[in-house]
Simulated scan of single mutants.
Amino acid sequence: MTREILVLYYSRNGNTAQLARLIARGIEEVPGMGARLRQVPPVAPVTEVAQPPEPADGAPYVDKQDLVDCVGLAMGSPTRFGNMAAPMKHFLDTTGAEWASGALEGKPAALFTSTGTMHGGQESTLLSMAIPLLHHGMLLVGIPFTEAALSMTRTGGTPYGASHVAGAKADQPISEQERELARALGRRLADVARRLAEQA
């Protein structure tokens, strides 16, 4: 039986989506574990305009049942002034029923982000995403310094989660170290989720 981890993201220029796919690959390297890729819809400038039920490209939009079904969560957002983007915050703000029921309690979670500049707020964005997950009772998984790429990277990658420096035009390719760290985070999250699920 394959246990799934929800890899949930918002991506405007495609960089956070690329990190999501790398984390999903890492998850699927762990025997018995699978990744369920989902994205949050953009926030419409006019709230009366409904988003289409499925995006034009990329992963399907997330459903609250995805949170219930999966044994773990990897969540990613680009940085907006050192914080998560509005669509991710908006989605999290709608999870009150899941908070009340404890749907995420005791499940492991990991975080990822992409920024335009080296000092564009990667770590504060990851920490901002951690706060609501802690309120949900989730167990946070980071990247330990035993991952050699964490000490070698000259672009993205933090102990708080995977990250990428996309550049001012969002056109910088994901570096080898960033790739390694994203996959390592996926593997670590999947390994923790598998162990917890086997003990339940």
Score class of each variant (00 low, 15 high):
Arg3Leu: 09
Arg3Val: 03
Ile5Leu: 15
Ile5Met: 06
Tyr10Val: 04
Tyr10Ala: 01
Arg12Pro: 00
Asn15Ile: 02
Thr16Pro: 06
Gln18Glu: 15
Arg21Val: 06
Ile23Lys: 03
Ala24Met: 13
Arg25Met: 13
Ile27Trp: 02
Glu28Pro: 12
Gly32Ser: 11
Met33Lys: 04
Arg36Phe: 07
Gln39Pro: 04
Ala44Ser: 15
Pro45Ala: 13
Thr47Glu: 14
Glu48Leu: 10
Ala50Glu: 13
Gln51Thr: 09
Pro52Tyr: 11
Glu54Val: 12
Glu54Pro: 03
Pro55Leu: 04
Gly58Ala: 11
Val62Pro: 00
Gln65Lys: 12
Leu67Cys: 04
Val68Met: 06
Asp69Thr: 10
Asp69Tyr: 06
Ser77Ile: 00
Thr79Trp: 01
Thr79His: 04
Thr79Glu: 02
Arg80Gly: 01
Gly82Tyr: 04
Asn83Val: 01
Asn83Phe: 00
Pro87Arg: 00
Met88Asn: 01
Lys89Gly: 01
Lys89Tyr: 01
Thr94Gly: 08
Ala97Pro: 07
Ser101Met: 06
Ser101Arg: 07
Leu104Gly: 01
Leu104Thr: 04
Glu105Gly: 06
Glu105Phe: 11
Gly106Phe: 07
Pro108Phe: 08
Ala110Phe: 00
Thr113Phe: 00
Thr115Arg: 01
Thr115Trp: 03
Gly116Ala: 13
Met118Pro: 06
His119Tyr: 15
Leu126Ile: 10
Met129Asn: 00
Gly137Met: 10
Met138Ala: 07
Met138Val: 07
Leu139Thr: 05
Leu140Gly: 05
Val141Asp: 05
Gly142Val: 07
Ala148Tyr: 13
Ala149Val: 10
Pro159Gln: 14
Tyr160Trp: 14
Val165Thr: 11
Ala166Leu: 12
Gly167Leu: 05
Lys169Leu: 13
Lys169Arg: 14
Lys169Val: 06
Ala170Glu: 13
Gln172Lys: 14
Pro173Cys: 13
Glu176Lys: 14
Arg179Leu: 11
Glu180Cys: 13
Ala184Cys: 11
Ala184Gln: 09
Leu185Ala: 09
Leu189Thr: 01
Ala190Val: 07
Arg195Asp: 15
Leu196Trp: 08
Gln199Asn: 10
Ala200Arg: 12
